[in-house]
């Protein structure tokens, strides 16, 4: 790991549309950017055995997760001409229809932004120690597994 302190990516509860909007607005001063690509992960109301998921409870091995995200950042910046990158993930309760993952990459041109975004989201799913337990209002939950 490099000497730089890993940035905190965690947000308590859902990521609001306002927060996402403000993040976009903050980039108006960065006029070398020509393309933003954004991924938003939203909690699905999956059906399981006649029950419907009402919310997901997220927990994380926070220190390791931040280290992993730091590594993903360095890898993405090394591989693509990105201007900036922001990653946020929820902890705690996120209800169906709310946002739990926000990945935001910016680049002078769209190719790098689209490609990097896809790669970053896949790496987050595979390598970052975060767990979601799908909950049902009326009964006990089950642990999700990434596909």
């Amino acid at each position: 790991m490099s000497g730089k302190k890993a940035k905190n990516i965690f947000v308590e509860g859902p990521i609001s549309a306002g927060f996402i909007g403000e993040s976009i607005a903050k980039h108006q001063s960065k006029t070398d950017i020509g393309a933003h690509a954004i991924f938003l992960g939203q909690v699905r109301a999956d059906e399981q055995g006649g029950r419907t998921v009402s919310h997901i409870d997220y927990t994380a091995y926070e220190e390791m997760a931040m280290q992993k995200v730091h590594g993903i950042r360095e890898e993405a910046f090394a591989a693509h001409p990105l201007t900036c990158m922001h990653i946020y993930h929820s902890l705690g309760t996120v209800r169906a229809g709310e946002i739990s993952l926000f990945v935001f990459v910016s680049s002078p041109h769209r190719d790098a932004a689209f490609t990097a975004l896809r790669e970053i989201v896949e790496m987050i799913k595979a390598d970052v120690p975060i767990w979601g337990k799908e909950m049902f209002d009326e009964s006990e939950g089950t642990w999700k597994v990434n596909q």
Partner: peptide
């Protein structure tokens, strides 16, 4: 030492 079940972030 951490015991880590399959990840399910996102």
């Amino acid at each position: 030492v951490a015991l880590l079940p399959p990840y399910s972030g996102g």
